[in-house]
Design a protein around this nucleic acid. Structure first.
Lengths: 149, 149
DNA sequence: GCTTGACCTCAACTTAAGTTTAGGTAGCAG
DNA sequence: CTGCTACCTAAACTTAAGTTGAGGTCAAGC
């Protein structure tokens, strides 16, 4: 296989092709401040090639469940917004990992509750952890309330 | 503790109180066809008390990641929309469980990839499973493309 | 010299799951 | 009778993450 050499500056079309993100979405990210470009003489966007990396990070972060706003503040917290270093990546990665861990834990709990509940038929709402997930008897808050049927 | 007796028919306010779902959301669910009510002489909604159970199911399904549209078709598939039986619940529950399983698996994979990637510093995009999650070299589809930097 | 393709901007549209607002009714308490 | 509370409807608004469309520029190829 031949090596493709990426030029230092790439067009929005190329960025789109390389990241799988549509041009309109890239424009959108730019409006949101997630990525930045220069312009050439014809007012076309030119991105430094390492923006590919930033867009990739955005995709991963989205897959782990972060909103673009979250991602923007993560990126804003980086020492150098345009060059993402290995240390940056380690930091972000471990923050995202623990986010994923949290989510996995929650979903697992929900699934286990469901296992219990399906077995016990507690759909009756009477002592059901699943249908009364958030409250102790009589406690205030969101979620279904205990009620004698 | 004294037993609260639920009347056969309950108002929207009571349904809201018992399920933790706002009145406006209950109206909305009704417009969507997820729940149904009768009206009294003053045109107020009256729900048969087991609608509490339906709303509870909706909440659980939402927590497992289903959209209201999905939920509507799940409910539509039940033999009797207003009385949810134990068998119904077992069916729904196991479908929802496998949905949760899928999600848990995906998130776990993502987290593990992240572990690998953080260790190897492959942020370079060259052989990174995380940043190139969807494609083999040269394959078409969504997601970042391999590119020699 | 005309067309084509890639790019530009701005504004309006989309979907989901509701919330908010405005204006109106019905029944009970004092 | 007045006020309060719970309820009613319809329509507009909200947020996120974009997409779509209209109208315009610019450089290259034939």
């Amino acid at each position: 296989m031949q090596k493709k050499i990426i030029p230092e500056w790439i067009s929005v079309g190329m960025l789109s092709e390389r990241t799988g993100v549509s041009v309109s979405a890239l424009h959108f990210y730019e409006r949101k401040g997630l990525i930045k470009s220069h312009r050439n003489a014809s007012n076309h966007r030119l991105y430094p090639k390492h923006v590919i990396r930033i867009v990739s990070l955005i995709l991963v972060a989205q897959r782990t469940g972060f909103s673009l706003e979250d991602i923007l503040s993560e990126l804003a917290g980086l020492p150098n917004r345009t060059r993402v270093t290995l240390e940056d990546w380690e930091q972000l990665g471990s923050r995202w990992q623990s986010e994923l861990d949290k989510k996995i834990t929650q979903l697992t709990e929900l699934r286990d509750m469901m296992t219990d509940c399906i077995g016990c038929g507690c759909l009756s709402l009477e002592r059901c952890r699943l249908l009364n997930p958030y409250d102790e008897l009589g406690e205030k808050g969101a979620g279904p309330r205990l009620m004698t049927e």
